[in-house]
Write a protein that binds this DNA or RNA. Structure first.
Lengths: 321, 321
DNA sequence: CTGAAAGCGCTTACAG
DNA sequence: CTGAAAGCGCTTACAG
């Protein structure tokens, strides 16, 4: 399916409307420094509509020196509802000032020369703030907006541990994910769990690596039970891992939370649908979306990049812990 | 955080390397029609590296008349692992020929003027092929690659019904999603279910609208049970809906699949983690990714848009139906 | 209020 | 093999 045809240019619109190319530009961009009579304006609009004129982005970017693209760089490969909703609101906000939002998903090395192919006005880095990632974002030569908190990766983990500790002195097991693309995060959270255990004089936490296949998850759990007897508490990498863990516990007829308690992170849609319903951590930064929008809009308009405050968490207590 | 600085241009590289701007372009683009001595080539590369030169995409697009952006338009707001994996492979493939891939997520009207801000070389439309959607994609003035099958939205639904029918003559209930952004799809699948029931002389299927909150899902199910007594089979919009349905059935102590059977669509990661494990439909088109890649690469290089064959499905039998 | 003209940073015929 | 120059389609001082 092709959609090509000859492109209609602003000079075509000018000819059709019987005005100059400059006037077309003034009208279409609503240039506030010009005062165009209503009649001329209408003629131009009508001609543009009739010819189906679409300004050609590269020309306009080249001339004006700035593009109208906001690039969201999202490090993981899956986009969940919560983040999607946040960015959807951002997209609506930037659209109001004539910008468009576009995503890069999965921050892979193959994609690194995106900066040679796209010149965004602003980049929103929803990534772990490692030096490598930051350097990579610099290549866009655009203002960079990131989540303010260096440790947002582990914010949920710390909240999980605080809750478990407050529930009583059970040994802790960290349930890691098996997904290769999440190892960086998973390891970081694991270290956070270890450190907190040390600080509270708890034994070194064992690690349960949970695959998404039910069978393998059950086996890993059996292996764990051979060396760690209940009661204990499982602090899961995220809700998905907690889910698989609950399935495995059910298969082995282990009482949750009496023998083993489980806590997730993310408060995804499905968290309340598990059996038993999953206790988890929700990210609840009041006005996070608003702060993000304000920061991006400011950057779009050449203003400073506003700092975005740290993430706040809250425990969503259900039945599993 | 700013990453601006003065942009280094190809003329700067030329000066640094002691050659002309043209030579810089030839070297950096590996122009096959020129034969540049190795020594000159090395000088240019070194100068570019030293200055951190990045070609400016808009200028290059304007001059060459084509961009190196592949835009993936994804109609839903959530990106699941399966689709993400497919597009990741596509991204790697186009990267090999110097293109970059970028997503538009959630095909909202606010984003419609994206075509004024971005000039992709190819657009991949992972959207329902309605006239409105197609017209919208045309505005990019680029070749459009879509999934070949007009009815891919309902392919999974037809497979669900075929399986349920083959299991025996239970009344069918269609479990719809409540999510506003999915209504178009959900209604389309519902109609497919109705039509198939007619064709097989089954009674008009009742509709259970399933919210993602457990409490509301349970209530809706109770309302249904007041008018439809077991046994019956629930054909769910997708795995998420099936999940919520299973949770509600568990709350009401209804035996699955003895009293009520449930089948999903998508074969998501969590499908085997439900209690009982979910019977569902997987999309299993052999070489779908390969076909997609071939089609996009062809379009990138100015060739024709290759047709992509219809989606194929397979039943993944677990315990719920 | 309107138009003729310059120029953004590249690529690519073209001449040498 | 290399370089001087034209030109992609816009926007925006500038002159009228």
């Amino acid at each position: 399916m092709r959609g090509e045809q000859r492109r209609v240019k602003s000079v075509d619109v000018a000819r059709e409307a019987g005005v100059s190319q400059a006037t077309v530009s003034y009208v279409l961009n609503n240039d506030p420094r010009q005062s165009i009579p209503e009649e001329t304006r209408a003629k131009v609009m009508e001609a543009a509509r009739k010819l189906g004129y679409q300004p050609y982005a590269p020309a306009r970017s080249l001339r004006s020196g700035k593009s109208k693209i906001v690039l969201v760089v999202w490090q993981e490969s899956v986009v969940e509802a919560a983040i999607s909703r946040m960015i959807e609101e951002l997209a609506a906000a930037v659209a109001k000032v004539g910008f468009s939002l576009v995503w890069q998903i999965g921050f892979s090395s193959e994609q690194e020369h995106l900066s040679a192919n796209l010149a965004p006005a602003v980049v929103v880095g929803l990534v772990d703030r490692t030096d490598a990632a930051l350097t990579s974002l610099q290549r866009f030569h655009a203002p960079i907006v990131t989540l303010g908190n260096h440790n947002w990766i582990n914010a949920g983990t710390r909240a999980q541990m605080a809750y478990l500790l407050q529930q009583g002195p059970r040994p802790i097991v960290y349930a890691a994910t098996e997904k290769p693309q999440l190892q960086h995060f998973s390891r970081s959270r694991q270290e956070a769990v270890q450190q907190i255990c040390h600080e509270h004089g708890l034994p070194e936490p064992r690690v349960l690596t949970v695959s998404q296949t039910r069978e393998k998850a059950r086996q890993a759990l059996e292996d764990l039970l051979a060396v760690q007897s209940p009661p204990f508490a499982i602090c899961a990498y995220n809700d998905d891992v907690a889910f698989a863990t609950l399935a495995a516990l059910s298969d082995l007829n282990i009482a949750v939370p009496e023998a083993v308690s489980v806590i997730g992170v993310d408060n995804t849609m499905i968290a309340e649908l598990s059996i038993p319903p999953l206790t988890t951590i929700g990210i609840e930064t009041p006005n996070l979306t608003e702060h993000l929008i304000a920061s991006v809009l400011s950057a779009c308009q050449g203003g400073p990049v506003l700092e975005i405050g740290p993430l706040q968490t809250k425990v969503v207590v259900r039945a599993s812990a």
